[in-house]
């Protein structure tokens, strides 16, 4: 569900090359799309593999905090909706792994990097989903933030990534709305339900703002913007998210857990308080509330599914052997009948 890459400290890259001297950067500046067989700098390819695969990992790890609620969702309708949402996220993972594979890597290796802890995914999924309201907050806030990140990626320079993002963005809007709907319902419910929603909002607000990654001033320079991969900065995206979400929260009757939050008429934006970057890096580095649980659930699901993958291969072999036999028989019969004629 979300572009997680802004979270990891970008690897240092070579100094930017001036557009005009570099034909590749010139192509990008002219808004030309890059397709898999085209020449591309190795650093561009590597950056994309890392960003797209981290994004794919986030989609499938993102299935876990919600997946646990499918059987506990409060009605058949909510169960159906959540099941469809989680299934979408699995599909998003698939689109993105496929986009990464166009760059000459194997999905099996990428998954192995995730399972062995070498690859990162969005830290937001290392937070717990203890109440039903958390499922509402994930859809409304987390998917909402993801959409903010992902819409600009639909125009990114690498064709397969941009196409995957277009498909994903079409599906994300439903995710955000079903989450909003959950929260909206709770806020029209009993005092206990309203309290549950407010508690959950208090826990998710800050981690959601951190999803956009470190401040621009703290981000190591990468060529992602010259390469047409990152169109808007972390702080620009975060500000946009705050600006659209604050009015939604006040419509719902939720209090934003930030005493510094106020409208700044001069800037035309909401001002908001400082983020706790110590917490951010703690969670990124593996010390969040659920890092271990998420990874071990992923590995267990993969290992438990091994027999299914093997059975599918065995079945496919059997089916193709049977088809080969049948065509032998058909071939034999037709030559017999030809001989008889």
């Amino acid at each position: 569900m979300n572009a997680s890459t802004s979270e990891s400290r970008p690897a240092a890259t070579a100094a930017p090359t001036a557009v005009g001297t570099d034909p590749f950067l010139e192509r990008i500046a002219n808004d030309e799309k890059i397709e898999p067989q085209d020449d591309m700098p190795e650093s561009y390819r590597k950056h994309l593999v890392r960003q797209i695969s981290q994004h794919a990992h986030s989609e499938i790890v993102g299935m876990l905090p919600e997946g646990g609620w499918i059987t506990r969702a409060p009605s058949l309708k909510r169960k159906e909706v959540l099941l469809a949402k989680v299934q979408d996220e699995g599909g998003h993972g698939l689109y993105l792994y496929a986009a990464a594979e166009t760059l000459g890597v194997n999905r099996a290796d990428l998954i192995d990097a995730l399972h062995s802890g070498r690859a990162k995914y969005s830290s937001i999924f290392n937070y717990a989903t203890d109440t039903w309201a958390d499922i509402g907050m994930i859809g409304w806030l987390v998917d909402g933030a993801a959409i903010m990140n992902q819409v600009p990626l639909c125009r990114c320079s690498y064709g397969p990534y941009a196409r995957a993002m277009i498909r994903i963005c079409k599906e994300e809007s439903f995710h955000q709305r079903q989450g909003f709907d959950i929260v909206h319902n709770l806020m029209r419910g009993t005092p206990e339900q309203k309290q549950m929603a407010q508690d959950s909002f208090d826990r998710w607000w800050w981690p959601t703002l951190m999803m956009f990654g470190p401040h621009d001033s703290d981000s190591v320079h990468t060529q992602a913007s010259e390469w047409g991969i990152k169109r808007l900065s972390n702080d620009e995206l975060r500000q946009r998210f705050v600006d659209v979400t604050v009015p939604q929260a006040s419509f719902l009757g939720l209090t934003i857990p930030d005493p510094a939050l106020r409208w700044n008429a001069e800037r035309g934006h909401y001002d908001f308080g400082a983020l706790d970057w110590d917490e951010f890096w703690r969670v990124v580095k593996g010390d969040g509330p659920c890092n271990e649980a998420r990874l071990s659930a992923r590995v267990k699901a993969f290992n438990d599914g091994a027999w299914v993958r093997e059975a599918a291969v065995t079945h496919a072999r059997k089916r193709s052997a049977r088809a080969a036999n049948q065509s032998d028989v058909r071939g034999a019969t037709s030559s017999q009948s030809r001989a008889a004629a």
Partner: peptide, 24 residues
């Protein structure tokens, strides 16, 4: 063309494609 996927054989690929690419 809508995308790609891994499957054990063509029949399996059709089944997966239905789930992945025609959910709506």
């Amino acid at each position: 063309h809508v995308g790609s996927l891994h499957a054990s054989d063509p029949a399996h690929a059709i089944a997966l494609a239905r789930d992945v690419y025609t959910r709506r």
